[in-house]
Write a protein that binds this DNA or RNA. Structure first.
Length: 113
DNA sequence: GTTCTCACA
DNA sequence: TGTGAGAA
C-alpha cells in the first residue's frame, strides 16, 4: 500500500475486538503475512521494540494483535526512511496517544459526573 | 517448523 | 540494520 490506490477496493473491517485481542499467531505466519522475515522479527524483538508472548511449554514465539500491528507500523516507517529506533519510538508514541484517547473516552462515558 | 549464536555486510 | 550458516 504505497500511496494512492484509494477507491474501489472494498476492505473488511474487523470490529470484534474481543476476538481480535485473542488472535495470537506464530512467528512463521506473521512473517508470511506481513512480509517481514522471521529473522528480522527476532532481531526487532532482540532490540526490544516488539515483544512476543510465550506459551509455557512451547519455545516458539507467538505474537498478539498489538505486536503484529507494531511490526507492520515499524516496517512502514522504515520504508519511509526512519531508523529502527526512531520508528520504534514513533510507534510507541502513536499507540500511547491512542490509548490515552480511549482512556479518556472510557472515563468520561463510564463515569459521567 | 522453531531456537540460538557468531560472524559478516 | 539486517543476514547467513551451523547446530540443536
Amino acid at each position: 500500500m504505497s500511496s494512492e490506490e484509494s477507491s474501489n477496493e472494498q476492505k473488511y473491517v474487523i470490529y470484534d475486538m474481543e476476538l481480535l485481542s485473542k488472535l495470537i499467531v506464530g512467528i512463521g505466519e506473521v512473517a508470511e503475512i506481513t512480509g517481514v522475515p522471521t529473522r528480522k522479527i527476532r532481531y526487532w524483538e532482540e532490540k526490544g521494540i516488539i515483544k512476543s508472548v510465550q506459551e509455557a511449554d512451547g519455545s516458539t514465539r507467538r505474537y498478539d494483535y498489538v505486536n503484529i500491528k507494531k511490526i507492520v507500523l515499524v516496517q512502514e516507517l522504515l520504508e519511509d526512511g526512519y531508523t529502527l529506533d526512531t520508528a520504534a519510538k514513533k510507534v510507541e508514541d502513536r499507540i500511547k496517544n491512542i490509548d490515552d484517547v480511549f482512556q479518556k473516552i472510557a472515563l468520561q462515558t463510564l463515569e459521567p459526573s
